[in-house]
């Protein structure tokens, strides 16, 4: 298979999924509203002292992003599974891993990127400083694709199962813990005047690791689930 056809296929899958998302805009908005809602609940739960909120901000935003992306994962493959499109994708004369990567990228555009863009606005609710906001955005920018990629494995494994949503969270959330730790760690580092390089480069390493392995693993999971 030549390189051109890989990029053509990627392009096709991403464009298709984005087009579908544009025709079902409500789904995208629901995830964003959920994210905003969860973050806004925390001050109501723990009280409005700014010192404490500033300390909690990074963790709260990261946990909320984690939960919001879990919410959108159920739909990653299930719509295509139900209407038979997934069968056709598996019969594509190109590698299924490339197709899966395309779906992951499209999923990130729809459910990860909006969170990254929304995060600084929510960070202001918690009185985060400008450098902290920038690092938060950067860590989310690197980290949310990992959530989409790891989540895709869980979504593929729980395809068509009863109660798939809750099960999906049980499978995927433990795997996402390192991202959560390094992501919120980066923000904590910058607020306490330390270097953020180590945290961010660890997320970067996880990102590369996921990029290499998760499309293939997800493709295998899809083949198992289609039986």
């Amino acid at each position: 298979m030549n390189q051109l056809s890989i990029f053509k296929l990627l392009n096709l899958v991403i464009r298709r999924d984005l087009l579908l998302a544009m025709r079902r805009r409500a789904d995208v908005l629901t995830i964003l509203v959920f994210f905003v809602l969860v973050v806004s609940l925390f001050p109501l739960g723990v009280g409005p002292e700014m010192d404490m909120l500033r300390k909690m901000a990074a963790g709260v935003l990261w946990v909320a992003a984690l939960l919001a992306s879990m919410l959108s994962l159920g739909r990653l493959f299930s719509a295509d599974y139900l209407d038979g499109t997934l069968e056709q994708m598996m019969l594509a004369p190109q590698s299924l891993s490339v197709l899966v990567l395309g779906k992951m990228i499209a999923h990130w555009f729809v459910s990860g990127l909006p969170l990254v863009l929304m995060a600084p606005v929510l960070g202001l609710q918690f009185d985060m400083s400008v450098p902290a906001l920038l690092v938060l955005m950067l860590s989310l920018l690197l980290g949310t694709p990992i959530l989409s990629m790891l989540g895709a494995i869980g979504a593929a494994l729980t395809l068509g199962l009863r109660g798939g949503g809750v099960l999906l969270s049980l499978l995927v959330l433990p795997l996402c813990i390192p991202v959560l730790i390094f992501g919120s760690g980066a923000v904590e580092a910058v607020t306490s005047g330390l270097s953020v390089v180590s945290n961010l480069s660890l997320i970067g390493a996880l990102f590369v690791l996921c990029l290499v392995f998760t499309p293939w693993v997800t493709a295998q999971a899809l083949r198992i689930s289609m039986e």
């Binding site: 494995i153 813990i177 392995f213």
Partner: peptide, 28 residues
């Protein structure tokens, strides 16, 4: 058969993740 294969894939992904999780938690 599907249960065996799906759970196996999860266990493999999990076992790759265990050292990463352990390291990250230790770091934390």
């Amino acid at each position: 058969r599907r249960a065996d294969r799906a759970a196996a894939l999860l266990a493999i992904v999990g076992s790759v993740n265990v050292p990463i999780i352990y390291f990250s938690v230790k770091w934390w």
